[in-house]
Every structure is written in structure tokens, then in C-alpha cells.
């Protein structure tokens, strides 16, 4: 197995790792513009997911 496939695989697992520890982000503070941490942590995760996926797709190219 080539190294780039392994790295791509790790990148694709990051979103799952980000969202699984629910007790860590299921809280009110720190708030952002009045919004609980619970919500904005998850929205930031979508941007994290996009970045990891684009990098993963880049590694799989070819």
C-alpha cells in the first residue's frame, strides 16, 4: 500500500473523529455571537471536513 493512500485514509477519518466526542463539545461556553459552543463547533467542523477532503482528493489524483 502506497503512503499517499494511507495519508488520504487518515484525512477521511478526521471528520468522524471530530464529531464523535460529543460530551467534549456539548456545552454552552465559549459562546460565539450568542450561539452555544455546541452549534458553532459543529459548523466549523464542516470547514475542517472540506479542507481534509480536498487534500485527500489531491493525494488520490492520478
Amino acid at each position: 500500500m502506497k503512503l499517499r493512500y494511507i495519508i488520504a485514509g487518515i484525512l477521511f477519518v478526521i471528520p468522524l473523529v471530530y464529531y464523535l466526542p460529543l460530551p467534549l463539545y456539548n456545552r454552552v461556553n465559549p459562546e460565539l455571537g450568542g450561539l452555544s459552543f455546541f452549534y458553532w463547533y459543529q459548523i466549523v467542523g464542516l470547514l475542517v471536513t472540506t479542507v481534509t477532503m480536498v487534500l485527500g482528493a489531491l493525494l488520490l489524483r492520478g
Binding site: 471528520p15 468522524l16 467542523g45 464542516l46 471536513t49 485527500g56
Partner: peptide
């Protein structure tokens, strides 16, 4: 629905 859409696309890509 947010982790749902975040996790579904890596699955889709694979």
C-alpha cells in the same frame, strides 16, 4: 444533520 453531512462525503468519496 451537521455531522451527518460532514461524515457522509468521506464515505461517498471512498
Amino acid at each position: 444533520a451537521i455531522p451527518y453531512v460532514a461524515i457522509t462525503f468521506p464515505i461517498a468519496l471512498l
